[in-house]
């Protein structure tokens, strides 16, 4: 077992019960510094619930969460974000009454000691890096769906996270936008050494980006390993295709 301090994020023994329903059962998830982990599983496997527990939107029934070795299990969401956690939502959640650059500035405001001009400069630099600077003064209502999601990602990056949690970032994007998103994610990781946890149904994207894949099914971790290992795992095949397929595959 690696010491907790060496991981950017470590969640141990996470259990979440909703009344009689066990949404997560004793799940462990560790993410090393700058590591790219994909979290996959069929619908209802508990992936989004795990992200909600990690970000403090919902309290775990049991378990412990550490960021950079520091216990954050009891911290409210905004304190975890300030401690280096970042997250995007399944459909991109922006603040429609603020312009694009103002949306980014809300994220940038986490870092103390930046004046108004500094905040704006930081936000514009982030937009430039994502190739979105021409959208800076647009209202949110004028953005395409794909751009909304990219602006949301930029806002999270403006918080300068150490660990980035992405909830189906490619859902609803066209092929060109998915390619663009993958290129951006690679560039961001290369520059910032941000650790990433990716929830994604687009298996092509998972297999090309992830260094390690964690598979959830019915709230339990059923497999973990490199993309190739996981793809060959009979338990994973059974979860996705049913028991018969797994036996046939053997």
């Amino acid at each position: 077992m690696i010491a907790a301090t060496q991981n950017a994020l470590s969640a141990t023994g996470i259990t979440k019960r909703f009344g009689g329903l066990v949404a997560l059962a004793d799940v462990d998830l560790t993410v090393g510094n700058g590591e790219f982990v994909a979290l996959i599983g069929p619908n209802g496997a508990g992936k989004s619930t795990l992200l909600n527990v990690l970000t403090g939107l919902s309290a775990p029934t049991a378990g412990r969460i550490a960021l950079d070795g520091r216990d954050v299990t009891r911290l409210p969401t905004h304190r975890r974000i300030r401690a280096g956690l970042g997250r995007t939502f399944q459909h991109g959640r922006l603040f429609p009454r603020l312009s694009v650059v103002e949306n980014i500035m809300t994220g940038a405001a986490n870092r103390a000691g930046r004046g108004e001009a500094g905040l704006r400069a930081h936000a514009l630099a982030q937009l430039r890096r994502m190739g979105l600077e021409r959208l800076a003064d647009q209202p949110i209502s004028a953005l395409s769906y794909g751009n909304r999601r990219m602006v949301e990602l930029t806002r999270v990056l403006a918080c300068e996270p150490r660990v980035l949690l992405l909830d189906e970032p490619a859902a609803g994007l066209n092929l060109g936008e998915v390619e663009d998103l993958m290129a951006r994610l690679r560039a961001i990781r290369a520059e910032d050494r941000i650790a990433v946890v990716l929830i994604e149904h687009n298996m092509g994207m998972v297999m090309r980006l992830a260094e390690r894949v964690v598979v959830l099914n019915f709230g339990r971790k059923i497999a973990e390993g490199t993309p190739a290992e996981v793809q060959a795992d009979p338990a994973v095949l059974a979860a996705y295709l049913g028991e018969g397929a797994a036996h046939a595959g053997r």
């Binding site: 970000t55 403090g56 939107l57 409210p76 969401t77 905004h78 974000i81 300030r82 970042g86 997250r87 939502f89 959640r93 922006l94 603040f95 429609p96 009454r97 603020l98 103002e102 500035m105 809300t106 994220g107 405001a109 986490n110 108004e116 905040l119 806002r155 999270v156 918080c159």
Partner: peptide
């Protein structure tokens, strides 16, 4: 930034918390 934070809270509390507000 306080004004933006107030408007962010009104627009979407969860997303506001997720930007550290």
């Amino acid at each position: 930034r306080l004004g933006r934070a107030m408007m962010a809270v009104r627009d979407d509390e969860t997303a506001a918390a997720m930007t550290g507000i």
